[in-house]
């Protein structure tokens, strides 16, 4: 029990917008929204110092439901937008969010490069192993034998991505897996991710009760990793491979130089670029 006497001034609710989420009742994404607002309140970050960038999908609607700066972007391009924003406004706390389809199908290339680029931002993939918004097609994290979509009768037959393993091999410096059934644990994980200097990635197991109703049983399968966070990529890789994809915790964290255009030789004075494009 960690009890500090410093009063928390800002309430999680202060980070919610007046727009009511249109997510289906019971959707895991509600818990992600709650965890983000709890983390921001804990860190007492002024709203105007935070931006939440998202792509397209049910999960990507999240940007509209917070009161921080938001950009509901283009499908699969949330990380590209976020990189541009961070390059221009290093002072902002940049959060990026979306689904497994948005981040690992159409946005897969941006994902691996964001991992290795290591700009200081936090990326949340709400993984429900389905395309929710387009009515239930298989995504890159769907099991090969899931055959509930007419588009893939009998299943895709294709091995799914392991988002944590992918992030590790692409060079991410902070990798965690959370679960919406534990919104408070997820909030704590988000605090650690936001505080991490560099690219922090959280895969959140976020059930879609509408197209994957069986995921409502995840609460009986999810458990915390027994091991501590590792800074050794080999150990982290072993943990990821040995796991069934349902263990939660911060898997890997390492201090790596943070990339910021203008620092360390990379070109990129945003103000200069802006003046070049002035009409």
């Amino acid at each position: 029990m960690n009890q500090s006497n410093a009063p928390i001034q800002i309430k999680p609710k202060d980070y919610k917008s007046a727009i009511k989420p249109v997510w289906c009742p019971g959707c895991g994404d509600f818990a992600v929204l709650n965890a983000i607002t709890k983390a921001l309140a804990f860190l007492e970050l002024p709203k105007e110092d935070v931006a939440l960038i998202s792509g397209i999908g049910c999960s990507s609607r999240i940007a509209a439901y917070t009161s921080v700066y938001g950009f509901h972007g283009v499908h699969g391009r949330a990380l590209a937008l976020a990189a541009g924003l961070k390059a221009a406004r290093e002072d902002l706390t940049v959060l990026v969010a979306g689904g497994d389809g948005d981040g690992l199908s159409i946005g897969g290339n941006h994902f691996i490069h964001a991992c290795r680029r290591n700009m200081d931002m936090t990326y949340i993939i709400m993984d429900n192993r389905v395309y929710g918004m387009t009515k239930g097609q298989a995504s890159p994290t769907t099991a090969p034998d899931w055959g509930d979509s007419k588009l893939t009768p009998g299943g895709t037959g294709i091995r799914p991505f392991q988002p944590a393993g992918l992030a590790l091999s692409a060079g991410a410096s902070f990798i965690a897996r959370g679960f919406t059934g534990d919104p408070n644990g997820l909030a704590r994980m988000l605090v650690a991710a936001i505080e991490h200097p560099g690219f922090s990635f959280i895969q959140v197991l976020s059930p879609c009760p509408t197209f994957r109703p069986e995921q409502m049983n995840w609460k009986h399968h999810v458990q915390a990793f027994e091991e501590e966070t590792s800074s050794d990529p080999l150990l982290a890789a072993q943990r990821i491979q040995a796991d069934d994809g349902m263990s939660t915790g911060i898997i890997y964290q390492e201090d790596v130089p943070v990339f910021q255009p203008g620092n360390g030789g990379a070109p990129g004075d945003a103000v200069r670029f802006e003046s070049e494009f002035e009409i």
């Binding site: 029990m1 804990f42 919104p183 704590r188």
Partner: peptide
Amino acid sequence: RSLPVIAPWDFDWENME
């Protein structure tokens, strides 16, 4: 009274909430 300020995740609930 001066109540302790406890972070949401530091509550030791029997379940997750």
